[in-house]
């Protein structure tokens, strides 16, 4: 066993006590003769311990405990009641309608037929929905609403000023003077710097995805405020295949929601309400980055991989 094999195949299982006896023996032997892998094993076990200490189990609220006990009592009560009593309970509202028949047993066939009919109708007509609906992801909802808005109404507002030099070349942009709302020509790499500077001045991360290799140009950027005052940066990219909108803002509480269809490093990719979304977290500052598009998620993954194969950019 070499170090690469140990680390990729055995390390996690070794730290978790999940190796079969033979594998365990082989792993022990390797570690005893390899200080690097021994250190890795110590690190793995320490990481495991730190995660356990840091992510404490939440206490179920007292109100929930009492609610559950009540629900269990109710389940016991229903289970203990004879079936005629349960049927009587079920039929009580019908009897209250003034039926001339008061004996519940007479209602049994009709009641059973009604239950079956209602169940069939419900299965056919009622939209399928679980007890717990898929939780909406507010950050994704925001991205969708902005994407929809920007498709027909994107007005960049950064950089705030624009100037031309003596030769007539634009080296920064005034949005009001730009009839097509473009930050810069496709070949004008200053668009990157200008936007980055604007985002930086709004106390937002200043790195951008370079989708040029994937055939996109930057249409422009915006800096706005969320309702609670947090600044948010938008960048619109356009290419032959479609548009990508990037959002970046401070969000210290968000965790990657479950349901990603794929990952690229620390980026999670989702298909959410007909949109493809790439979510990533900045390593510092509690900022998150969301890319959203109508294109297929695999297309977005390819574009992201081409634009930013290693670092975290927006």
């Amino acid at each position: 066993m070499d170090c690469r094999e140990y680390i990729s195949e055995y390390l996690a299982g070794h730290a978790d006590g999940e190796l079969a006896p033979l594998a365990r023996r082989a792993a022990d032997e390797h570690v005893s003769g390899c200080p690097i892998c021994r250190a890795q094993l110590i690190e793995e076990r320490a990481l495991k311990a730190i995660v356990r200490q840091s992510v404490a189990l939440a206490k179920a609220p007292a109100e929930l405990k009492s609610r559950i006990r009540g629900a269990l009592d109710e389940a016991d009560r229903r289970a203990a009641a004879p079936w005629t009593a349960r049927l009587t309970e079920f039929l009580a509202p019908f009897r209250a309608l003034g039926s001339r028949i008061s004996e519940p047993l007479v209602w049994a066939p009709a009641g059973i037929a009604a239950v079956i009919a209602i169940a069939i109708l419900a299965a056919i007509a009622v939209p399928r929905r679980g007890l717990i609906a898929p939780p909406p992801v507010p950050e994704f909802e925001l991205a969708i609403s902005r994407f929809q808005q920007f498709q027909h109404d994107f007005v960049p507002n950064v950089p705030a000023e624009a100037y031309e030099n003596q030769t007539g070349a634009v080296y920064a942009w005034v949005i009001n003077r730009d009839p097509v709302h473009r930050v810069a020509d496709e070949a004008d790499s200053d668009a990157f710097n200008d936007l980055a500077r604007s985002f930086r001045s709004a106390n937002l991360p200043d790195d951008l995805f370079d989708f040029a290799q994937a055939g996109y140009t930057i249409t422009g950027g915006r800096v706005d405020q969320l309702p609670d005052g947090r600044p948010i940066a938008y960048t619109l990219y356009e290419g032959a295949a479609g548009e990508i909108v990037s959002l970046c803002f401070y969000d210290p509480t968000m965790a990657a929601p479950i349901g990603a269809v794929n990952w690229l490093g620390l980026r999670s990719f989702y298909q959410y309400k007909g949109y493809s979304i790439c979510l990533s977290f900045y390593p510092t500052g509690h900022f998150i980055s969301i890319l959203i598009t109508r294109m297929p998620v695999m297309q977005l993954m390819r574009d992201v991989a081409a634009a930013d194969p290693s670092g975290i950019s927006r």
Binding site: R129, G130, P134, G259, N262, L264, Q271, P296, M298, A305
Partner: peptide, 20 residues
């Protein structure tokens, strides 16, 4: 509950990214 929502499945296989 989640699968009853609007989540879609990927259009193609992601193997090419597994290597990365």
């Amino acid at each position: 509950a989640w699968h009853r929502g609007e989540r879609e499945q990927p259009a193609s296989t992601p193997e090419e990214f597994a290597g990365e």
